[in-house]
Nucleic acid binder design. Structure first.
Lengths: 198, 198
DNA sequence: CTCCGATTTGATAGATCGCTCTAGCGTGAC
DNA sequence: GTCACGCTAGAGCGATCTATCAAATCGGAG
């Protein structure tokens, strides 16, 4: 039996992603996690806010691994981008358009209302950007170009998730993937032409 | 004095955009709108759900006008895209990173939890896509290319809003704007090369 | 075994939620 | 005047929210 704290974290991550932060009740969480209510305040004395922050940070950082999965040294950059967006489309369809970004819903909810949680989401996005930039620099791009491409991929993915979940159609994801692939080709061509990305 | 219903709609639109749907209480709305509580149920007998739907549809459709503002026949396509993203960045900074997309927060919240509201957001995104495709077709792109570019712009904008609001930094918006401009240049070059976009 | 701290348990407080209800107000028709 | 009707006004309902609390339970040390 996985630890109670882990079960609470896992259930919270799923509920926050699907229903949002304010849309998820603590009773709902402990029920889904098969945990007693009191345990929640034992492990998270800071209450819902502390739970939210820990969930954002851990489930957000787990997604960094995806960079390593899709961008390996032996496949080219454009193929990696296309595979990443195609994979996201498959996951979305398989989960009935529920499981997209683990923190996007919460990020929008708290951006103007809860500084502690906003900071947590910002740290996750920053970590993604740093990790992606490092990873993509291996493909012959300068650091500035790698950062640009990383931000382009993340923003496109996030935006496409919104439209795809709302429309229940993966077309936006496909279009966004193609756009990112095109941007990657442009940047690669530019780098090959002798501009090392300053 | 503007009608009570209009004040309720305006206050709801602002609160939903900043705090989300579940994060906004009806008491909060009538207080912000300076309206009596009973009036809310007089004008919206369907309760919070009907109010949410009307707000999504009207404030969502108002944004279609932005296509006409930024994409006029006498400025070129790439300049229009760059101006749109730059304008969004100014608005974001001016409102302390609060006012971005009027429906994105709600769209993510309700996508998997409320079919009626999910449908409303989907209709808005569809209307944007249709209107944008028609508008962008005037710039020498085929209809398929115009639709692709519209979806690219909308998804990039939405995704950049998430990161920019969370990070309190307009860099993602600037990067996304540049990426869309690059995609537009590619599509224009392709169209000029004789492919009418089938 | 006894003891003690860590963890589990659920009842419950106090506030707020969406919503309903009835009474009153104001204005135009007649 | 007075009647009808659209709107104002807010008290209050049951449900649910986050959070607290004291008691029960468990496992390892001595």
């Amino acid at each position: 039996m996985a630890g109670t704290k882990d079960r609470i974290m896992a259930a919270s991550a799923e509920l926050f992603r699907r229903n949002g932060y304010t849309g998820t009740g603590l009773k709902q969480i402990v029920t889904a996690a098969n945990a007693p209510f009191g345990s929640l305040y034992h492990f998270f004395p800071g209450g819902k806010e502390q739970l939210g922050e820990e969930v954002i940070r851990t489930s957000g950082l787990m997604y960094i691994e995806l960079f390593d999965i899709f961008f390996t040294p032996d496949t080219d950059l454009v193929s990696g981008i296309e595979a990443a967006f195609a994979g996201a489309a498959v996951t979305l369809r398989e989960t009935d358009f529920a499981d997209a970004c683990p923190i996007a819903t919460v990020a929008l909810e708290v951006a103007s209302t809860n500084e502690q949680l906003r900071k947590a989401t910002a740290d996750v996005f920053t970590a993604w950007t740093v990790a992606g930039t490092a990873k993509l620099s291996d493909f012959g791009l300068g650091e500035a170009a790698a950062r640009t491409l990383t931000l382009t991929i993340v923003t496109s993915l996030e935006g496409a998730f919104i439209l795809s979940r709302s429309l229940r159609d993966t077309e936006p994801l496909a279009v966004a993937g193609a756009a990112c692939a095109a941007v990657a080709r442009n940047l690669l061509a530019e780098a090959a032409r002798g501009n090392p990305g300053d």
